[in-house]
Every structure is written in C-alpha cells, then in structure tokens.
Design a protein around this nucleic acid. Structure first.
Lengths: 118, 118
DNA sequence: CAGCATCCCCACTGATACTG
DNA sequence: CAGTATCAGTGGGGATGCTG
C-alpha cells in the first residue's frame, strides 16, 4: 500500500489508513465480534481471502490490529482491535451513521431494513 | 470515480465518498473558511487544480458540497458544505484527532508543532 | 483453517497545455 | 480566476491456484 512520504496534516495520516476499500468494514466487523479469518470472511460481503489478509496485514502495520496465533492443528489465529483501532472505530461508527442518513434521505431504506438497521 | 453498484452496508456508502485522496482535506478546508478554488488550492498542500476540481465535482454529485457562480469578470465561484457535508465533517474531525494522537504516540509532534496543532 | 505467489486490469492520480 | 482536454504511469484490487 502506497502512503504519502510526508504528512503535512494529521488528517492525511488517518486517511491513508482508512482509504483501503475493505478497511472500515474489517474494523467494524472486528469490533462486532468476528475475530478469525473465516468469520471475517463470512461476515464481509464480497471480500476475497487475499484482500482480507492483505488489509489485515496493513492494519497490523499501522498498529490498529493485533493478532494471536496457535501453532497446533487446526490452525487458529485471532485478530482484534488495539486501543488505537478502537479509537478509529469511533470515526467509523460515525461514517456508518452518516451512511444510514444518506440512504434514508435518498429513499434507499430497503437495504437498511433488510439488515435490521432501521 | 468508481463506486460499488450495490451497497450491502451503509459504511460502504460513506467510504466511497471519503476514499478519494483529497476529499477529507477539501471538506476540512471548506469548513475552515476556504471557499474559492484559488483559496482551496492555496490551503491544500500539493494538490493540483485538476484534482481539486475533480474532487469538488464528485463531492457536488454526492450532495456534500454546493456551489454558487457569478458570471461577471473576474470569475468568482464559491463552494460550501451542505448539511450533509457538515455532518460528514464531524467524522473527518475525528479522523483528524486520531491522526494527531497517532503522530504523538509515534513521536512525530514536530509537524504538529509547526502547524500550531499542539 | 490460515496464508502466500502470480498475473492482469483498470481507475486514480498527476503533468501539461489550452479556453472563457 | 475558473475550468476543460489529453495523455501517461502506477498501484490497488481481484481471480486463481498452491502450501503447511
């Protein structure tokens, strides 16, 4: 993932972390209790395993996510949000509420109702 | 700009709006009082005029920004946040504060001090 | 179940030059 | 000042197949 070499404003920092297509949803699902790769994959509509792992690794690099591994079989790894990741979740929660408002204003509540968000 | 055709979750909606490289900073600067193209360009480090206009137009499409034009010379146009844009600014303000925290934790306060953010 | 390696494409970005 | 047009590079995203 390509990030600016120089940050002239803190906003650029957070944006570089958030801008990946799947990152907000991954953080969202991590906070909702999905911790294993397979659970995350199941809970995120349309993501491929490769993209999931790639974005998780980037979140690891940014210190938003931490990971535990067991070495026995079957393999089991767990991802969870760090404090920094939890803080970032707050921003993502607001993004979620904005998305809901926009969909309501645009009369697209159908999807929200389907998902029990309304 | 490419967006998902189908939204399975409101978060994807907001993310599609925010993901452009310059959009958060543009919204930030709009809320800080830069309204003309030239003022925005001056206040945003490293943006080209083309990218500025392109992102502004996308924000117009999403209903985050509105615009007024006068037809005399010299040309004068003004961009400003809609209510929806102001709401989105709230999320961006949080992103900004997260960025500040990260830079402090990573001992990169130098930039923040330069800009009077600390 | 968890994760890596390849290959490919297209969308985003950016530089430059031109117009009202 | 405000905006359009064109062209080129690249890296993010996705499909697929393999490994422990």
């Amino acid at each position: 993932m390509k990030v600016r070499e120089e940050y002239t404003c803190p906003l650029e920092m957070t944006h570089d972390i958030i801008k990946g297509k799947w990152k907000p949803i991954i953080i969202w699902q991590l906070s909702k209790g999905s911790h294993s790769l397979s659970a995350l994959k199941r809970s995120i509509n349309g993501i491929s395993q490769k993209m999931l792992i790639q974005h998780l690794n980037e979140l690891l690099e940014f210190g938003m996510v931490d990971k535990t591994m067991s070495d026995g079989y079957p393999l089991k790894s767990e991802y969870f949000l760090t404090d920094r990741g939890k803080k970032t979740f707050e921003a993502i929660a607001i993004m979620q509420s904005i998305g809901i408002e926009i969909m309501v204003e645009d009369n697209r509540q159908d999807i929200l109702k389907e998902k029990g968000l309304l």
